[in-house]
Simulated scan of single mutants.
Amino acid sequence: MPYRMYIRNTFSMALRLGAAIVLGVAMPMVFHNTAAAGQKVLLSYEATPSSGFNLPGLARASYDDRAAFSAQVLKQIIPKIISANGIDPATLETEVTPGGYLLKTNASLQTEGELDDITADRLAGSLGYVFRQYSVLVSRLDDTSGKTGFVIVQFPENTLNAAVAQKFFEAADATKKGLGGGYTAFGDEQIYLNVTNSEGKPYSGLDDDAFLDGLKQTAASFHAPKPEIAASGKATARFIGNDWDKSGGGEDYLGQLGGPHSALVEKLETIGKDYASLVATTAEKNGWNHD
Rank of each mutant, 00 (worst) to 15 (best):
K147L: 09
Q256C: 00
A14M: 14
M1K: 09
G125D: 10
P202R: 04
F169P: 01
I81Y: 01
H290W: 04
L127E: 12
N106W: 01
L160G: 01
G38K: 12
K285Y: 08
E93R: 15
K246Y: 08
F168I: 06
R132W: 04
I21S: 14
A68T: 14
N197R: 10
S262C: 03
Q39N: 09
S221E: 02
S262F: 07
T175H: 01
I271M: 02
G248C: 04
S51C: 06
K80L: 14
S126Y: 09
E95Y: 11
D208F: 01
G250K: 03
N197W: 12
A220V: 01
G149C: 05
S62L: 08
N194S: 12
V130W: 08
A237G: 14
R60D: 12
H261Q: 15
N194M: 07
T175C: 03
M27W: 07
T34A: 13
R8D: 12
A59V: 05
S277E: 14
F168D: 00
V153S: 02
T48K: 02
R132H: 14
N289W: 09
G18C: 12
F11I: 05
G99P: 02
A276R: 15
N106F: 04
V164R: 10
G86Y: 07
I7D: 00
E157D: 09
A220P: 01
E157M: 07
A71Y: 10
Y129M: 11
T218C: 13
T282V: 08
I118L: 12
A67V: 02
G272T: 08
I229Q: 00
K40S: 11
E199R: 15
D188P: 07
S50M: 15
K80E: 15
N33I: 12
G272W: 10
G180F: 03
P79G: 07
L17M: 14
G205M: 04
S12W: 09
T148I: 15
D173L: 11
G248Q: 14
I81K: 01
F186R: 12
R60C: 02
P56L: 06
S62K: 11
L123D: 05
D245M: 10
L160C: 06
K167V: 03
F11N: 07
G205P: 01
G272S: 07
I21G: 15
D207H: 04
S198G: 12
L278Y: 09
L137K: 01
F131T: 11
A26M: 13
A165G: 13
P89W: 09
T196H: 14
A224G: 03
Q76R: 14
